[in-house]
Amino acid sequence: MRWFWLTFFTVCPIAAVVLCVVAPGLDWWFPGEAGSPLGERIDSLFYLILYIVTGTFIGTQIAMVYVLWKSSKKDDERAWYSHGSHNLEVIWTIVPAGILLFIALYQMDVWAEFRVLSKFPKEARKAPVAEVMARQFEWRIRYPEPGRTLQIQQQPTDLYAVNELIVPAAKPVMIYLKTQDVQHSFFLPELRVKQDAVPGQIIPVWFEATKPGEYVLVCAELCGWGHYKMGARVVALAEEQFEAAMEKLAEEQSDDGFADAGESDDE
């Protein structure tokens, strides 16, 4: 039985390390390439932490397996208890603290750029594209009329949409995030954006979709029984197409049902 457990506890960490190494190649767990420049930097932070953790894991497992095998051969020797050793306590407090401090300082730039309004790209900050209002259980979106800037207060000329946020691609954009009821979370997994919407607050969020395309928008805060319904999309369009889409939205929204009366043969 002793040999069984020895082998078991040796094989498990080895298998874990092997899996960890082959996982990215097999497309397991890893969330694919980030669709935004800041997302790439967030990913590199993630990988840095992963490397540190992997190194620590391998180190501790080697130590454990070594102790396991070494002491398994000595039946008559009593175990040595390290509990209360001042030196050891100091070492394993200072080393992880140092690593954490390093991570904390190292990620500050990225964090600031993601979260601190004054560090947002200027062009995004100048012209927020839309207000995104989360509510149970959908995303209501308000755009300024093309050529105008978004105001905090509703304007008579504003344009409205639901569950589809259209933004220009390849350029930083900012939205105002609000919630009408409970807490929700604005989550763009491909763009590595996740921001809680908090009742009573207007939270600026910026992101940049490198390539035109459709991106998933979901709610990442369990907000009620219909939480799963809050699936929507962000559509990033090349500048010209974006403008055309806004014009189209403006036209749809001013529909008076008269002009197209002649050829309306809908369903």
């Binding site: 959908e138 639901v162 569950n163 929507a232």
Partner: peptide, 18 residues
């Protein structure tokens, strides 16, 4: 179809745009 697609703001009927 429009009601299902765009929901009814002011009520609990959400949009099923997707």
């Amino acid at each position: 179809g429009r009601v299902i697609k765009y929901g009814i703001p002011g009520t609990y009927m959400p949009s099923f745009l997707l």
